[in-house]
């Protein structure tokens, strides 16, 4: 089969659409490597096929991109975990430690020790408040007592 006949046979189209058999796929790959005329035709063919599918392109919702970002990041981490230390290139090794993810929720995460620390501060503040009030009222009642005693002493002297 010469190049023209091969092009017109539609095997290339079936290859691109994922409908070709293994034998046909092998034949296409061989043609690309051996025939320069076929490789030149591929440039036009890819333009044509891209043009057809781009005509029917529909922009997906933005949420889809975020989902893909999250899933691919997760896959990358799993992949990195499967490697040994020496398999991971030095420049990518550190990059995998951090995920470049935007989170939209309003919650923050803190260390677990902040909880007892917060409870201790809360309890201490209550103790100091009660103690402050106790000593304030005690001091004011003592002041009243002193004033009362002073007036009694003055009245006896007169």
């Amino acid at each position: 089969m010469n190049t023209k006949e091969f092009i017109e046979s539609g095997i290339l189209e079936s290859y691109v659409l994922g409908l070709a058999t293994e034998e046909e796929q092998h034949e296409v790959n061989q043609r690309v490597l051996t025939s320069s005329g076929f490789a030149d035709y591929l440039v036009d063919f890819e333009k044509n096929i891209n043009g057809y599918f781009l005509q029917n392109a529909v922009p997906p919702p933005p949420a889809v991109r975020e989902l893909i970002q999250l899933r691919t990041a997760k896959t990358d981490i799993q992949k990195a975990g499967a490697h040994t230390y020496y398999d991971i290139p030095v420049d990518t090794e550190k990059k995998d430690d951090f995920l470049d993810i935007e989170v939209n929720d309003t919650y923050i995460k803190v260390h677990k020790w902040w909880r007892p620390a917060f409870i201790a501060v809360f309890v201490l503040s209550k103790i100091f408040l009660i103690a402050g009030l106790y000593y304030y009222f005690k001091a004011s009642s003592q002041q009243e007592e002193i004033d009362k005693l002073k007036t009694e002493i003055l009245s006896r002297q007169q």
């Binding site: 290339l12 189209e13 063919f45 333009k47 096929i49 043009g51 057809y52």
Partner: peptide, 12 residues
Amino acid sequence: AFHEFFKSFPHS
């Protein structure tokens, strides 16, 4: 027919 189908579309 696949070849004919894509041939019928003009180059973009």
